[in-house]
Design a protein around this nucleic acid. Sequence first.
RNA 1: GAGCGAUUAGCUCAGCUGGCUAGAGCGCCUGCUUGACUCGCAGGAGGUCACAGGUUCGAAUCCUGUAUCGCUCACCA
Length: 1262
Amino acid sequence: MEKNYDHNGSEDKIYENWESAGVMRADENSAKKSYTIPLPPPNVTGQLHLGHAAMLAVEDILIRYKKMTGHEVLWLPGTDHAAIATENVVLKYLEIKSREEMSREGFLGECRKFATEKHDRIVHQIKKMGAHLDWSREAYTFDRERNFSVNWIFKKLADDGLITRGHRMINWSVGAQSVLADDEVEWEDNEEDFYEFWCGPFILGTVRAETKCADSPVMVHPTAEYVRAKNAAGRECVVTKKYFNEHTQLRKDFEITEIVPGKKLEGMKFEAETYAGTRKFWVVADEVIDPEFGTGAMTISASHSSEDFALAQKYDLELIQKIDFKGKMTAIAGLCEGLSVAAARKKAGEIMVEKSLLFQKRPHANRVPKCYRSGTVVEPMLSPQWFISVNKEFVDKFSGKKTTLCKLTADAVRDGNIKIVPKRFEKTYFQWTDNLRDWCISRQIWWGHRIPVWYDEAGKIFLPEKKSVIFARHGESQANVENVIGGDFSLTESGRRTAEEIFEQVKDRKISKIICSNLKRGKETAELVAGLFANNTQIEVWPELDEFCSTELAQKSGANFRRVSPIQINFDELKDESLDQIRDRAQSVFSKLQNETGEVLVIGHKNITAALFHFSRSDDTEKFVRFRKNWEWRRGESRDFEFLQDPRGNEISFFRHGESEWNVSKKVQGQHSGIYLTEKGKSQARDAAKKLAYKNFEKIICSDLERAIETAEILRTELGISPKIEIWPELREWGLGAVEGKNLAEAFGASENFPYDAIARKIEAGELDSNAENLEQLEARAHAVFAKLKKEKNALVVSHGGFLGILQKIHRDGSIGKLQEFFKTWKKLENLQHFSLEISSLTQDEDTLDTWFSSALWPFSTLGWPDESATDFQRFYPNDVLETGHDILTFWVLRMVMFGRYATGKCPFHTVYLHGLVCDEHGQKMSKTKGNGIDPLEVISEVGADAVRLSLVIGATPGNPIPLGKSKVSGYRNFVNKLWNAGRFVQFQLSESENVIPSLTPKNLSEKWLLHRFSEVCANVSQKLKKYEISAAGDEIYHFVWDEFCNWFVETSKVSRNPAFLYGIFLEILKLAHPLVPFVTEKLWQDLAKDDEFLIEKSFPAPDFQDKKSVALFAQIQMIVTELRKVRAEKKLPPREKISIHISAGKSADEIAAQSDLIAVLGGCSTVKVAEKISQKPEHSVTVLSEGMEIFVEIPFDAAAEKTRLTTEISTLEKSIVALESRLKNKNYIEKAPASLVAETKSQLEKNANELQKLREQLSNL
RNA sequence: GAGCGAUUAGCUCAGCUGGCUAGAGCGCCUGCUUGACUCGCAGGAGGUCACAGGUUCGAAUCCUGUAUCGCUCACCA
């Protein structure tokens, strides 16, 4: 072993070993109690900083401790896509100013590439800290799985009416042409002109003179006193009394006519000139007006200030945009139109002077919001945004009670279900929950979860649709009986009966279609189930639903007739189809399913269905293998497969009326009325109705011709849901004029069923009479129908063959074009009874969601939610502890609680532990400009991760700044090295004997003492960790190892060698220290312990050894030794020079005498004589008192020096005696203080008095 | 402007529900090439616990006020 611990040589290797051995993976099947911490995901493009390091250290200690105390721990890692931050980094990296320089897809591609590249860096850095993370479950806030959760909760919120769209003030950076988050705005102190100008009789004040061109009401304070004054010229003036008194000019020129409390001003109306024209004003009183500020009156710029906007909403004022998004004045600014804000302000001032509106201009200290990126001014602007209504009531699915998101969030902490460490942050938490405003979740950036909202051309809003497909597993096949895997076998008798079981489960659903694989057992089951439905439901065979067991595997198991459970499938061995291929197949099935309408029943196979369930949300093949192992599906069992589907535009179904009398007699129908359906036509309508039953039509719209109305009525009756019928004459068949009623052959010279070609030719050629509709008319009618249909949703339209064709053609091509060509395809569709058209197409909202939206789901979106039956969710949710920096309590923690309670009904964790900001050793914030920043990776390579962890954890209390400096770090490096060297000592001792078996049986005094102390320390550490007093726990370990084990015990062990115990206790100490310093302890464990397991797999020590007597005796020995050392130091005796001592030890003489060897070695004595009482003090000796004993040390002494020593000791003793006595003299003390304390005081006094007595004797004997 | 926190040794900080002579690390001073470790060992000096009141038998600890510093939020027509 090296003399100094080489962290660089061992840490990475140890971590690799942990990882490859899989010790850090949480076993979802374990029976142990779970303990879960979600890792706050660092920015994927970020670098590890000390805040991360502190977070990792604290969480790792908790995780390792819990694991060693018998928990199944899951510490789930991941990264955050950090929307705005990443976008900015990528912009910089690409050296472009704005993302608009690229296409959306192109830019996102660059972001994705960049994020993937940087991902490995941050992950590597996290590993450097020794974090015991389950990398097999690594997640990313912007992957497919998380996107699914995001959309799911968005949909849920929307369904509960909690998502709204509204206007809201945003920070608009004119320079960057982008919205900024509040924390991206920098405030700059500025001295600006404060304009005070006339507005009718009022004098108003503002810095932003340019915005005062279209304000309407004048706001005053309701109870403040206003002065109404008039000058000789009749000019009126209304200002607060204070303002009036402060301005000599006003006092001089104006004469007070009236003093009015504000309320009387309310309702006052006047017309007044502004710099941009005359406007009407009225007066409103509101408390928000500060009568002390300015003139005590103001007007409202609703579109350019958030406070004003709030007022505008309160008083329902018109919103007038005065500045556009380019930072230029709009037309309302009159002469200032088109000017920049700064120029407009100057110009407005000049106009005010011209119009003598300006009363005065004075300097005013102001703070101006600036864009941190472009440095330009940030304008508050109004823009449409999406919100979560946090104060709106809804019915909580879990409690069944009415509540609000805000209440749910606050109550989680208020009811004690979540504890915040340190507690004082609960105040901050409540301060937020009590004043929570609607959460604006939309961001005008590209890198993020796109808002799952679509609009049609009319601006109507569409949300994703929840869709459910029923899956049922086929019945038992011959292969099951014969224990063969794969192959194409038929159902057994019992397998055939499974169909009835399936039917029972799904009979009440409106199944429109059954889909099955191309394998016999699937098809047969499907056929049997279909047969049980009265209307003989349609079956579709999808070969892509075939099971994926490989033929090789089938042969293997088939040949041996050995049962191979799917759980034993070695996915690497799948030769026929790789995991990647299975994934692609599952995903294509998924997208095909999305095109299905109505309720669909899929008869599936176990493995491919599992793949479908998994890969519909995820691309991760490794996770699929695990998922599959936990996924059970009984034969015949049905399950709902729920997913979200992008909305389609408004889809309208069209239906051609059934066969009419004239169809049979082959007469031209056109718009001729009085034609009715034949019996065949009626039954056609009834059949069709069955097929359309799943659609839940709200309305049937039909033309006003009898054959259509008749059809509509049959449909209505058959559909059984009584949609109303609306008659639209514009849905009539095209009008053919004079030929109507004639025989087809007669009219068009064609006897075929329906001579479209001939009709088309005639219409195009204009050969029909003027009563017939021409192409323009037809086209206009079709467009009118579409325009009207856009307002409908879920309607069924009953019209006529020819006109429906026109509608279809126009929908596809925009115009009729050549009818003949069109009818070539239409002919093929002649027998078609119905079709659907998407009347309007949808476009998705351009905006993305606030990063915190996806982060808020982190504690459960990583565990399989929204699938609440997911193994991980069942096993590891709720989480236990959420540990993070206190600065994001309100941003993140609060939102996790909100979404957690809302989406899962449970608090996502029970404890929130907040660490402080890491700062330098003088408490200064670390910053690049100050140059006091510390790069954790640099420090790790200098001193090792263990030392860094200790530095960040010890001496840090939750919520308070964590000071970190070089000296602190090197101090803990020294500790790690100390531990290492203790290990070296142990190894050296072991090398001196053969086959030492570690033992925890103490044989001598110091071993008993140490084991007793070790028991105490373990208990204390556990206690402290339970209370999250990590610093105190670390401190205790630090001092136990260094002071008690190294400095005392190792020294004593040199006196009486017992390698077995030394070995045993040292291994236990390694376990104790492991959560704190995992690397060095693991290294020592591997070097010393003869054990194949890693240290982390061992139990945290919890010995229960008590021996108070030995502890007391050892304390006496320690005192003696310390006193001797003091004497030696004072007398400057070199260690080589041994001393002789005599101890007068009273009753404990025998016990002390038994330890004289120990005293001799530790105290550097040549002889140690112990007696009950030594009556004669040896010559040339110094006397020291310790624990009621007298120790005579035989050394030449200097009487003068001895005198001063004794005098000072006497005086301190006297002082303490006075204090103790005065306490005991106090009656109240004796009566009110606890008896044990009083007794203790008494004995202390006695002891001190005794010592004082002896010291005085010694002094007099000198 | 509002809220929260801090003020303890030269420096950085512990001190949990009040209770022996207020602790640690670093630094400082004095010794020591003791056979695990100079990234060490032994010993030592150093504090009116910001200030002023109050509660209490008893206050660094609880309460009130003052001062200084820090953090967070809001941003003022």
